[in-house]
């Protein structure tokens, strides 16, 4: 009887996995199809991958995506880590205000964040392109870094920092030599989180850029014209990249703690 129930549970989970992965599996399979068909197998080939790498627009979008993600991650890691150290040392009232402020971009609908930033960029006459996209990505990435670093600071023994000061360490040096090494797991998790968030984003990018396209906005404009297999090849590569990133993150921490 017990085995029977376990089997039942297992089949349910298998069905959910099927639901989640069949579209992806089909995309991956047909990205290797020799023909244009998205339902009939016409032989194995790397044709769509070759076309993908020859497509200037896609390559440019890939460059934009990676540049934005890397710069936004680096800046948000610095801003978020400093912010967390600062907030941790702040008086209660100011800290609560800042924390509530940090929840704001996390709870606001993406579309509202996107249009509000777009309106501001247009108002201050900043050309919407890669630069504004980076600013927007830093904005939604930083709170995630902050909330990954804060728990590590709370776990820290406050006496170690005091001890460093007592032993004649300058505050700046105490931070780089004592605090940063102690909270580095949180910083790295926050950075990886920021990176995936940035690679994942569509809505906010869509509103904050006009000229430069990233992969999300490119797929969106391509999808409006219908499904094409060269996008399958791109999707497969992106899927494999996220999978690899996640395996790395998961090795470091359980997924539960970073969501």
């Amino acid at each position: 009887m017990k085995k029977f129930f376990k089997g039942l549970k297992g089949s349910y989970l298998a069905l959910i996995l099927l639901f989640l992965y069949s579209p992806i599996a089909i995309m991956i399979a047909f990205s290797f199809n020799a023909g244009k068909s998205r339902s009939k197998w016409e032989g194995f080939s790397f044709k769509w991958y070759q076309e993908l790498f020859k497509n200037e627009a896609i390559m440019e979008a890939l460059r934009v995506t990676l540049t934005v993600a890397v710069i936004a991650t680096v800046v948000s890691v610095i801003l978020g880590t400093l912010g967390a150290i600062g907030i941790h040392a702040c008086k209660k009232g100011w800290a609560t205000t800042l924390l509530n402020l940090s929840y704001l971009p996390m709870t606001m609908p993406d579309i509202v964040t996107g249009i509000s930033l777009m309106m501001m960029f247009v108002f201050i006459k900043l050309d919407r392109g890669m630069f504004t996209m980076i600013l927007a990505h830093i904005t939604f990435d930083t709170p995630y870094v902050l909330f990954s670093v804060l728990p590590k600071l709370k776990q820290m023994d406050p006496n170690t920092y005091e001890a460093a000061l007592d032993l004649g360490c300058k505050p700046m040096k105490a931070i780089t030599k004592v605090i940063i090494p102690e909270i580095s797991p949180g910083i790295i998790t926050g950075g990886l989180l920021a990176l995936t968030m940035s690679l994942d984003d569509f809505v906010i990018s869509y509103f904050t850029t006009d000229k430069a396209q990233n992969l999300s906005t490119l797929i969106y404009s391509a999808a409006k014209r219908g499904v094409k297999p060269d996008m399958y090849a791109l999707s497969t590569i992106m899927f494999i990249t996220v999978l690899a990133l996640l395996i790395v993150i998961n090795k470091r921490t359980t997924l539960e703690n970073i969501g």
């Binding site: 989970l13 959910i16 996995l17 989640l20 992965y21 069949s22 579209p23 992806i24 089909i26 995309m27 047909f30 998205r38 995936t196 690679l199 994942d200 984003d201 569509f202 809505v203 992969l215 999300s216 797929i219 969106y220 999808a223 499904v227 996008m231 399958y232 999707s235 992106m238 899927f239 996220v242 999978l243 990133l245 996640l246 998961n250 997924l255 969501g259």
Partner: peptide
Amino acid sequence: VLILLPMWMNFLLRTYASMSL
């Protein structure tokens, strides 16, 4: 991890996948 993985995939990619299905 497998059940949560799609959460971290590009949102448009997921939509595109369901569209192609």
